[in-house]
Each structure stands twice: as structure tokens, then as C-alpha cells.
Amino acid sequence: MTGFTARPEGRPAHDAEPSGTPRGTGGTAGRPGPADSGPADELTVVPKRHPGRWVTAIALLIVAAATLHSVFTNPRFGWDVVNTYLRDVSIGRGLLVTLELTAVCMAIGIVLGVVLAVMRLSANPVVRSAAFLYVSFFRGTPVLVQLLFWYNLAALYPQLTFGLPGVSLDANRLITPMLAALLGLGLNEAAYMSEIVRAGVQSVDHGQGEAAGALGLTKMQTMRRVILPQAMRVIIPPTGNETIGMLKTTALVSVLAVPDLLYSAQILYARNFQTIPLLIVASIWYLTVTTVLTIGQFYVERRFSRGNRTVAPTPLQQFRQLLRTHTPSATGRTPE
């Protein structure tokens, strides 16, 4: 006995074609069966219906309406206060500090991240291990702890000499809250970015590097002209996520009294006790910037998928596509 079990012959499966044997006795030549004969173009193709979509849509609408009603009728949200402080000067300054922190920390993260990634992919075992140690250290401790460490660096090294003769800087004056924030967030980000860049470089087909090498391009030229441009397609989406994540992580610097968006709001509500409205103000601005960044990310991704099969449609194109599939005439269906 073999391990295989065959379906008994002579008993066709449930949905098998009725082959050869005439089905029933009433099937005469003049009367075509309901679905298995006749010219195909006379039949209407009906796509699968999705009643569940309508049910979930209605349920969600009810929940959304209830939530909105509560939000706008509960006076404790203090929407008038929100409206007043949304364009407040100190909130605006805080937003600029948040944007500056995000931009500079991401720049540090990306540049250092690429260097670390190239180091991790190096054939030199010393360089490789150094990058590995860096990544494990900065990924292995909370970024909040790192921020506090940089902020309190003066407790470790009151005078910074950098090992150079004649150099002696007062750590307390050199490491301002802003510099501690940039170092803490930037160096931490570099660890994550290096992993993203490494994954991108490794995603490029091995043959690409070989082909470039066989043409006489040096390793550096190959990396810059052939590997990295192709790795970008893999690197860009998570980098966009990292940027959006960084924008929100900058809120941590409020513990160092850096006047970012959150800390500016905190200063205000410490004075006027409008805690919730001011947190809403901060949230609205965070949400606005992340939305702008998300849109930017979408178009940057499109740019870098050049020469590739799947170029994502823009939201406008997607919307048009949605309208088209839900317009009866476009699908070949006759309207009910």
C-alpha cells in the first residue's frame, strides 16, 4: 500500500465538468442548458457582491458621528482656547524648534547611518565589529536615557579635552540642552538608519555588483552609481517612517527643557492651567506636520521606483479608479 490516496474513479468531484456523459435525459439539442452552452457574449458577468462593506461603513459612520458629537458638545475640550493658541507665537517658535530638531537629527542619522552600514558590510572585520558594537549600544538603551546622559555629560567629564593638548572646554557650557538633544536623538537615529541602509544594500541583486565590477568600475563607483540608487527603493519607505517617528520622538526633549512644541505648550498650561486645550494644540500641529511628511514620502517613493514595474498611483488616480470600479457602466454590468 502506498501513502497516496486517489479519489475513486468514476465519481466526479463536486464541481467537476460533466464530461462525456449526458446530464439527465432532457438535454436535447434544441434547448441549451442554463450555463454551459450558448455564445459567451450574451451572458452578463456579475462580480462578487460585498454586502459586508456596506454594513461596516454604516457601523463606522454611527461611531464616528457619536464621537464627533461628544467632542464638539463637551465644553471641557475648550475649543475656543484651542483656537486662540493655535497661532500663538510661542507655540509657533516651539514648532520651529521641533522641525529643526527633526531635520538636523535625521540628517545626522542618515549620514552616520550610511557610514555605519558601509562599515557593517565591509570586508574588514575590525571595522565591521566596531559598527556592530555601535548599533547594539545605541539600539539597546532607551533614547530617553541617552538624552539624559548627554545632558549630564558634565558630571562625567567636567572638562572636555578630546585628548588634544591645549583644548579644554567647560562641558556645562558646551553641552547646551539643544546640543544634548541633537546628539542624543541623532546618534540614536544613526543606529536605526544603518540597519535600514544595510537592508537596502543587501536587497540589491548580487549580479549588479558583479556586472559593475566586470565593467571596470571600482568598488566605490559601484556602490555610488549602481548599488545605492537601487537600494533607495528599499531604503526610502522606512526612512520616511523614521522621519515621522523622529518628529514625535523630539517631544522627549521637553525633559531637557528644550523649548520644542510640547515644552512650549507645557510652559503655557503651567501658567493658565488650560492643560487639555494646549495638548490638543500641540497634537494638531504634530498631526499637520506628519500629514505633510506622509504626502512628501509618497511622492519621494514614486520618484525612486523609476525603472520599476510598480509605480503607485497618486491618491487622485486611486480615487478615480475607485469611482470607475463602482460605476456600473464601466464594469460591463447593466444597471439594476
Partner: peptide, 9 residues
């Protein structure tokens, strides 16, 4: 090469 290895970008 067997798989051409043209630069797709």
C-alpha cells in the same frame, strides 16, 4: 552574464 545584469535604474 546569464541573467544579463543590466542596471534597471
Amino acid at each position: 552574464f546569464q541573467h544579463f545584469n543590466l542596471f534597471p535604474h
